[in-house]
């Protein structure tokens, strides 16, 4: 058995005196497509910041790829697409190629320069998200959905094993959301990239993810989508702390 990609044990985190996360135990196995849901302020972003090493857990331990996070060095194995990714300055004069290249900048390191191989990686990543024809187009002239693809390519270019996406479909129209999930399935199934998708949209999550984690300061549920869909509305409302109406989708 290979070790899970992420293993959190008894992790707690508080901002000053406010508890954000309490005693979280979470394992993400290789190949997962895990949807992280929960109310606003439930600690989803905090959990991601912990996984990215931006915050240190005050209690408990985190392992990434079988290694304690304190010693973890292979940060290029984890790609991150931020919620704010598509609120960038649209007038910024950068081509798709230039934007995706920034995904390699930290790997290359200071005082080193792009080589031919790096350029090939960039082209491959852009091809993977189906945007090959737009390599030399200014990013500002693309549609919201296309831009989102470019930001995914930027995270893919360093060849991550785990891709974390924070509310990636905000501001994208319905038709493109479908295409977007098609892309995620392709990355998950054909390219063997594990996915951790944060969203408040439980309905879409249950349709696409193969596991759900429901977070509201504590981890209220973690299991496969099927058993999540079978939870009663009462149970869900208890997790959220307020009544909730959800349309869940069963996998065919």
């Amino acid at each position: 058995m290979t070790s899970p990609i992420v293993r959190m044990q008894h992790v707690s985190y508080a901002y000053e005196s406010k508890h954000a996360l309490h005693d979280i135990n979470l394992e993400i196995p290789t190949g997962a497509f895990l949807g992280l849901v929960g109310p606003n302020g439930g600690g989803k972003t905090t959990l991601i910041k912990l996984l990215l090493g931006l915050l240190k857990p005050q209690k408990g331990s985190i392992e990434l790829f079988g290694e304690r996070i304190e010693h973890f060095k292979n940060w290029n194995k984890i790609g991150f697409v931020s919620q704010k990714a598509n609120s960038f300055n649209r007038g910024f004069p950068a081509t798709v190629k230039e934007v995706v290249s920034t995904g390699l900048t930290p790997n290359i390191g200071y005082f080193r320069f792009f080589t031919k191989q790096h350029k090939q990686k960039v082209e491959y990543a852009v091809d993977l998200v189906g945007m090959k024809d737009y390599l030399n187009t200014n990013i500002g002239s693309l549609s919201g959905g296309q831009q989102q693809r470019i930001f995914i390519a930027r995270s893919l270019v360093s060849n991550p094993a785990l891709l974390i996406l924070d509310e990636p479909t905000v501001g994208i129209d319905t038709e493109n959301v479908q295409k977007f999930y098609d892309l995620l399935h392709q990355l998950n199934e054909e390219n063997n990239i594990s996915l951790l998708l944060v969203s408040h949209d439980i309905g879409t999550m249950t349709k696409h993810a193969n596991g759900i984690a429901c977070l509201n300061k504590e981890l209220h549920f973690h299991g496969d989508t099927h058993s999540f869909a079978n939870l009663s509305e009462n149970q869900l409302s208890n997790f959220y702390g307020h009544p909730l109406q959800v349309v869940t989708h069963q996998h065919e």
Binding site: W75, F88, E98, V99, T102, T105
Partner: peptide, 11 residues
């Protein structure tokens, strides 16, 4: 281009 992304990536 993206200060947040740069900071997250350890620049």
């Amino acid at each position: 281009f993206d200060e947040e992304h740069a900071v997250v990536s350890g620049i």
